[in-house]
């Protein structure tokens, strides 16, 4: 579900926060990305407030906005003063509200799933890297299982098993997060292998420090920069995975708005009502692009050596 970055340049945590901010603000792409991300985050957080101003919630039917065949009346899929982005065909729900609330689903799942895979990946990677031997081999095999297992099939099957009271979004977060850990585990493992040879670690070890102390006090802080960058870069992949699941109809159940589902439905309407595809499609594209730009910028700012290096 996430593409694998085999060679992640080592990051030096030396750069001070101010220096990082300065480099970041000089990167126009990164600034654009951060601003767009911020706009979407605000939209998601204040969605109820925004739709109170725009006048329609995402669950309200407005059949008057549709014609006899269920298609929106008027220009651009029913764009009007009441409905800024027009309405959904067949329901008359306000597309603006649907897109705004869709940001909640995308961002929540994207960020939370990233947290899940980062936590899992860091724990597994650091343990495998530090202890080596059998831990390392188990990691290797476990990675193979996760890579080899079709996540989509897993999602469909588990979605059918879980009881209805279990929140589906939580399930999606766990599943996407779970299938994403091997990539970060590899990177963390590699970095841990390097760090464990460092003088200060070797010295502490000789002085009788416990493994827990070494792992969490000495190695983990030095991995912080890598982890932050990696997390940022992997958010768009997770958002894309959520949208893909929704597109295939196994994401959050309706009526909770989700861009992927809107896109999947809008594809059927594209010849009659192209704006239905445009708005959710553009939102998904923009937010993915923004996270990618911000992630790139952040990496460059934290590690000037890799400036311009792609994903």
């Amino acid at each position: 579900m996430a593409s694998v970055i085999a060679t992640e340049p080592a990051l030096e945590p030396s750069s001070g926060a101010r220096q990082v901010a300065r480099r970041l603000s000089a990167d126009r792409g990164a600034v654009f990305g951060l601003v767009v991300v911020l706009v979407f985050v605000l939209a998601a957080v204040f969605a109820p407030l925004i739709t109170a101003i725009s006048g329609y919630g995402p669950y309200e039917y407005d059949l008057a906005a549709l014609d006899d065949t269920g298609a929106p009346r008027g220009f651009g899929g029913g764009i009007s003063r009441e409905h800024w982005f027009g309405v959904e065909p067949l329901t008359g729900r306000d597309l603006f509200a649907v897109v705004i609330y869709g940001a909640r689903t995308s961002l929540l799942v994207g960020v939370a799933a990233t947290v899940v895979s980062v936590v899992l990946g860091v724990l597994i990677g650091i343990v495998a890297g530090y202890f080596g031997g059998w831990a390392d081999r188990v990691l290797s095999r476990a990675t193979d299982v996760v890579f080899g297992f079709p996540g989509l099939i897993f999602m469909i099957a588990v979605g059918a098993i879980i009881p209805p009271w279990f929140p589906k979004s939580l399930l999606i977060i766990v599943v996407i997060g779970f299938f994403g850990w091997p990539a970060i585990a590899r990177v963390v493992r590699g970095q841990t292998l390097v760090l464990k040879q460092r003088n200060y670690v070797v010295a502490s070890l000789a002085a009788g420090a416990s493994a827990t102390h070494l792992l969490f006090r000495q190695i983990l802080p030095n991995l912080a920069a890598t982890i932050i960058v990696f997390a940022t870069i992997s958010i768009p992949g997770k958002i894309g995975a959520e949208a893909a699941l929704s597109f295939l109809g196994v994401g959050v159940p309706p009526p909770t708005p989700a861009w992927g589902r809107s896109i999947g439905e809008a594809i059927n309407w594209v010849q009659t009502d192209p704006m239905f595809l445009f708005f959710p499609g553009a939102a998904l594209f923009l937010v993915t692009l923004a996270f990618n730009l911000a992630g790139d910028g952040l990496r460059d700012a934290l590690d000037p050596r890799s400036e311009g290096a792609g994903r």
Binding site: G29, P236, G240, A243, A244, F247, I263, I267, V270, G281, L284, F285, T288, L289, N292, L293, G310, R311
Partner: peptide
């Protein structure tokens, strides 16, 4: 262009 390619979902481009 490549940034756009990385950010666009495959199914959308395909459709």
């Amino acid at each position: 262009i490549s940034m756009a390619g990385v950010s666009a979902p495959a199914y959308l481009v395909g459709l």
